[in-house]
Design a protein around this nucleic acid. Sequence first.
DNA 1: CAACATGTAGATGCACATGTTA
DNA 2: TAACATGTGCATCTACATGTTG
Lengths: 331, 331, 331, 331
Amino acid sequence: MASPNDDMFGGFDMNSIDYVLPDDINGDLLDGNFFFVGNIPTKEEYPGPFNFTLTMDTNGQKWVYSKPLEQVFIGMNKVLVLNFHTELQLPLDEGYYIRALPVYSNNEHINVPVCRCTFHAFEDDPQSQAHHTPDKCRCEEFNNVGHVVRAQCRDAIYCFDKHSGRHSVMIPVNRPQPGSDKIAIPYSFACKTSCQGGMQRRAIHLIFTLETIDGSILGRRILGIKICSCPKRDKERQEKDFYADKLGENQSKQRLPQSNNEPKTKKIKLEHLELLQPPKAPVDGDLKREIKDFKKMFDDFSSSLNSLMSMHSKMLQKMKRIDELQRSFTF
Amino acid sequence: MASPNDDMFGGFDMNSIDYVLPDDINGDLLDGNFFFVGNIPTKEEYPGPFNFTLTMDTNGQKWVYSKPLEQVFIGMNKVLVLNFHTELQLPLDEGYYIRALPVYSNNEHINVPVCRCTFHAFEDDPQSQAHHTPDKCRCEEFNNVGHVVRAQCRDAIYCFDKHSGRHSVMIPVNRPQPGSDKIAIPYSFACKTSCQGGMQRRAIHLIFTLETIDGSILGRRILGIKICSCPKRDKERQEKDFYADKLGENQSKQRLPQSNNEPKTKKIKLEHLELLQPPKAPVDGDLKREIKDFKKMFDDFSSSLNSLMSMHSKMLQKMKRIDELQRSFTF
Amino acid sequence: MASPNDDMFGGFDMNSIDYVLPDDINGDLLDGNFFFVGNIPTKEEYPGPFNFTLTMDTNGQKWVYSKPLEQVFIGMNKVLVLNFHTELQLPLDEGYYIRALPVYSNNEHINVPVCRCTFHAFEDDPQSQAHHTPDKCRCEEFNNVGHVVRAQCRDAIYCFDKHSGRHSVMIPVNRPQPGSDKIAIPYSFACKTSCQGGMQRRAIHLIFTLETIDGSILGRRILGIKICSCPKRDKERQEKDFYADKLGENQSKQRLPQSNNEPKTKKIKLEHLELLQPPKAPVDGDLKREIKDFKKMFDDFSSSLNSLMSMHSKMLQKMKRIDELQRSFTF
Amino acid sequence: MASPNDDMFGGFDMNSIDYVLPDDINGDLLDGNFFFVGNIPTKEEYPGPFNFTLTMDTNGQKWVYSKPLEQVFIGMNKVLVLNFHTELQLPLDEGYYIRALPVYSNNEHINVPVCRCTFHAFEDDPQSQAHHTPDKCRCEEFNNVGHVVRAQCRDAIYCFDKHSGRHSVMIPVNRPQPGSDKIAIPYSFACKTSCQGGMQRRAIHLIFTLETIDGSILGRRILGIKICSCPKRDKERQEKDFYADKLGENQSKQRLPQSNNEPKTKKIKLEHLELLQPPKAPVDGDLKREIKDFKKMFDDFSSSLNSLMSMHSKMLQKMKRIDELQRSFTF
DNA sequence: CAACATGTAGATGCACATGTTA
DNA sequence: TAACATGTGCATCTACATGTTG
Ligand SMILES: [Zn+2]
Ligand SMILES: [Zn+2]
Ligand SMILES: [Zn+2]
Ligand SMILES: [Zn+2]
């Protein structure tokens, strides 16, 4: 995870927080599109060959940034300007893009796409026409109804990946950059992290990737974000909790398995709409009802399968680790 | 508004709280259908010619009733059994009905129909097909998607008034009642009073009317209700506030509190309701094909799953073996 | 499920309870070994071509039988004599067997084999040598350590099915039967239904199948059983509950989906041994620990997969039903 | 037995309950190692030359302490932090340890070692390899399988005395203590007092001894403890019984109650303990192969699972489509 | 921004299930 | 067989998360 450091870009933007990480592993593995493990996007920072970095100006903003939590707190539909920068000049022969993709922070939900909630989506597309068929997205025709993350600029490209079902937004960076390759992108967010029938109080991270037109990934940066009504209050409370936790932790130095940048886990009620639907008697062998029932079963099954997948992906990691360990043994 | 009085139905049901009002004013004025003032239903109690009354058994229920507030507090989708009774025998030559209609308590919203929220409606009708055209309601085809108030019995009739845009539910009472005309109706509620994009924290009342088939109103009873997650807590708080207010009487500084239930003066007759009975029709060829396709996919999936299981069981064995081996080694 | 009727085998055994069912469906489907749906044995009664029946003498026994519950209550290691009978003479050219197989009553656990608990198994095989490898069972060498159901006769054959991991016991019936083919088998049970680390308070049924030597199934009978310390007390309590439930049910005639002979569901704590194991710090990249961790993850995954399978099998049923319904539609 | 006295460590920790006993009898008799009478450890308090004391903070803990019973009630695997203290500075030339040893309270069982139950031990060592030979203990290799009492700190030393067959845990206290020699040890307990095949509802006491490296005993403190599921309830009941008994004093008709803690008179020295440090050894070739195999299987499984997921996602689409179709039809 | 409204998750408590003792 | 011991499941409560109001 990024370790902010306020004074880089010497003399350039003193209030910018820097997210540059020391060159890390696994960058080389990723040269295709999203690097998915069963629909799970990577949340690893990756400066890449051009040292792709993310900074932000935290002064006088309407949002707040928590250093210890490495997280932005912002109101819905407010603008968050982020600065992206590459240390080395990008070759100009190609088109480059910065993609912003939201993912759930918690591993339990990381495999489900982050979408708008029914309530907010209803305003833009009351009849769910934009996503009538699951592998097709007509968001553009409906005010980008499905996109939580938006870029407030003309040249934003709203994307939908039909395999993962995820929405993201891309900004081209191929305009000539004077001096250093720095670009400021004004983002906004069209749902709260707490939206019922949407993110449902599940924390999210934003994944920013520097990509070529063909989807090759040249850098990746991660940023935690909470979209809520009282950013300041929530930031303060969470920081307080964070420090309290750290104190309690120090005492007995507990090893928490919280992999990735998964925050302290907390069970979330996934409003699977209590199906206490009126206990109707079997009116008559009604096909319709049966299909409906099956649909419910199938939905349950699917969510079960999802959690299975998440377990599986954890096993995959572990297996990798074991493999490494084992190889390194001398025998 | 109902004022409970514990000793009616002498020796009938000692745990029933009785809502009979001493014959009150203006009852005689109302002998026709609903009385609206620009889509505003009447919230006046009216025993009518048969002394129509509402009672309930408050013992050992999952909901709670606040006497001072004259309000029921209940969880979503929980059942509230209400007892209706007429002192005089209803003539048997006609059909009678008891209608339940929710209205906002506050005058500011009393003219807007009480509907389900986008979130909960989405479950039953993601494409808002049931209310595609404003003066038409196809709720019946969509699990009564728009109805907040439901009756958990077979013979419930779900109504929609196209002039007011209001949903209500009716129960026929024309079956011969032995002894007294008492009927117990199990209601449930498919949204919370706080539902975002629905009732939005606006208090509501239920209006129960005894009607003939042609819509003439023979009695009316009112009951405040709050559908929420913590009925007990909320009842207690609101009662506390209620008493606190009564003390400081003059400065009523509450937010948007539970009611302005003043009797309206001008009233208008409610349209006759369209009783949509779900017309049975044959399954469509398209659907049939889709189902067939799905079945095929499902079969494939199942066999795949089976082979997965067999792989899994082999893994289980292997894992056991590894475990043994590992344990037997000291390293 | 069997409907006991005390006076069959006219003059033969007046106290025998009869489990004959009117010839039922699906018998013809089963002519192989166990009829598994993803490791789920069938719990349907099937008299078969010889009208295979199960009776018992309920007088003066140390165990008790509850007619309404269709269940035997018996102490651990006590003997339960069951009488099996075929109406038609079995052809003598072949060997026949009666197999007794215990399964969990509740669908949630029906796919996991019924085994002895760690505590009781420990006495016979402290080092778990009998089931060192999962597809091999050396129970015979260890006092039949894994068998909950035992037959107290010399010619009992203790079986293990490596695919399902289930233990069962078979008795040959090929000795010449005078008059009617009746055989009395004395069973006993080596664990309680409540055994921690074994059945863990999960209700079970016994499945008795009449089989040929090659595993063809000629009849099947089902019997609920609870092995406990106070059979009488528990029977009485459960009957009381049963009747109380029936009363409450009649009132509002709720449609419970409790398929098969699954009793009223009750969540069971599957002592997955709270792994609050001392939060050890990562001493050093210890392969051993990693493997152990992986094992835990794998175990969780496996149990998840199991429940997935159970959901899947329910979906299978539903799909079948839909298919039938759909075919029967005229369009 | 400890008798709490609230005001020691004047001004030190007001919430700490202090267990210092006024120098009691026979303390001076014991200046060597454990004192056994045929494998019976001493349960006498002994402040020793440094006034060794035991205190605990009973505020806001997840466990409860009963003063009248002089006993802690705690859930399994929960942490109990105990504070040990010596009034006089320990000479720094030697290593000192605090040992925690559980013993049965009742004289009838005091001579049998307190061990983990078969059920809980099974998790860590299904084949009972750790205690294959009675005078050898390889607990360390099996997650300390035999130890009921554990210390949640890195430097815990798990001991086994082959003569008595008892497991205990020691914590070194030889690090320089600023000011007073106070040390807080977080203990946890890996079986319930009621565990079948283990403690089997037999009450236990913990014996804490301050020892030198060579086993000389410099102090001893005793604490009753019950590890159970409902600490609060059980504490209250036992206190009630305790007071009831005190009233009816004479007829002590309790079942197998919490203690006969009478001082034993004859004592014997405990053997020197073998401190098994887990010897690191290379991985075995067999294991390596198995892991490799498993990895392969797992990879296959994973890819299978992936394809399953893709099938599943197609089914999801189809299901959605069916749902739409079905909704749009009135049948 | 403070006070409040209201949903959620985890803790607590209670009634029951079930073994044990006498 | 009755009284008790003790684990379990569920109902309830409490603290908190988070939106809303003024
Ligand atoms: Zn939203
Ligand atoms: Zn709603
Ligand atoms: Zn057992
Ligand atoms: Zn145990």
